[in-house]
């Protein structure tokens, strides 16, 4: 066998963190592509007269009302999630299991709150999926966003179980889950603005 110089113990490399960053890149192009298609459809929708805003694109049907309190609370809730996820990282670095556990719990709880608010929004808006282009695309894009949210909750649960289960030196998963929540918040901000604000 050829004798290349032997290596000492390999330095730790942040595989989970880098993998999460790549997955976030994929999710960004997924949502970016979907938002671009949404904007493309809206740009070619026919014009109609709006009592409040004059001539507008006839994209979201007039009778549909967005429950703005719920959608705004989703955005605020995700901002809180970011703070809590970062708190989990901060506590985990100090091996503070009590506070880390609390931070993980609140992160997951607020994540569930956002999912709940999304379901509430779907119910309140009363969009029938078989009514037209806006309707199917609305469910496709918000459904995808919700799926990514659920992935975030599962990711947080895995990080919490690993850390609280005793693997307190493995901080990379905790950092990666925080990174994921930053992405989710940025992505939801884009979806919120395009789908619920611009309509």
């Amino acid at each position: 066998m050829l004798a290349l110089p032997p290596a000492p113990s390999a330095p730790a490399r942040r595989q989970v963190f880098v993998g999460t960053a790549l997955a976030i890149t994929a999710a960004t192009t997924l949502l970016g592509g979907m938002l671009a298609t949404w904007l493309q459809f809206r740009a070619v929708a026919p014009l109609r007269e709006s009592p409040r805003r004059g001539l507008i694109r006839d994209w979201m049907p007039e009778k549909i009302v967005v429950p703005e309190v719920a959608t705004n609370m989703m955005l605020i809730g995700l901002c809180v999630v970011c703070v809590m996820a970062q708190w989990a990282v901060y506590s985990a670095k100090r091996a503070d299991r009590t506070h880390a556990g609390l931070a993980f719990g609140i992160t997951a709880l607020f994540g569930l709150m956002v999912v709940n608010a999304q379901v509430f929004t779907w119910t309140q808006m009363g969009v029938a999926a078989d009514d037209g282009a806006f309707h199917t695309m609305f469910y496709a894009i918000t459904g995808t966003m919700t799926l990514l949210l659920v992935v975030g909750i599962v990711f947080t649960a895995v990080a919490a179980f690993r850390f609280l289960g005793g693997r307190t030196k493995e901080l990379e998963v905790v950092s990666a889950s925080a990174l994921y929540w930053y992405f989710i918040t940025a992505a939801f901000t884009a979806v919120w603005f395009v789908v619920y604000v611009q309509k």
């Binding site: 960004t28 997924l30 592509g33 037209g132 309707h135 695309m137 459904g143």
Partner: peptide, 19 residues
């Protein structure tokens, strides 16, 4: 992922409205 996003749109649209 862009292909996946397009396929999600196509799937939901084809399943419910074809609009």
């Amino acid at each position: 992922p862009v292909f996946v996003g397009t396929s999600i749109y196509l799937w939901v649209d084809h399943k419910y409205a074809r609009a």
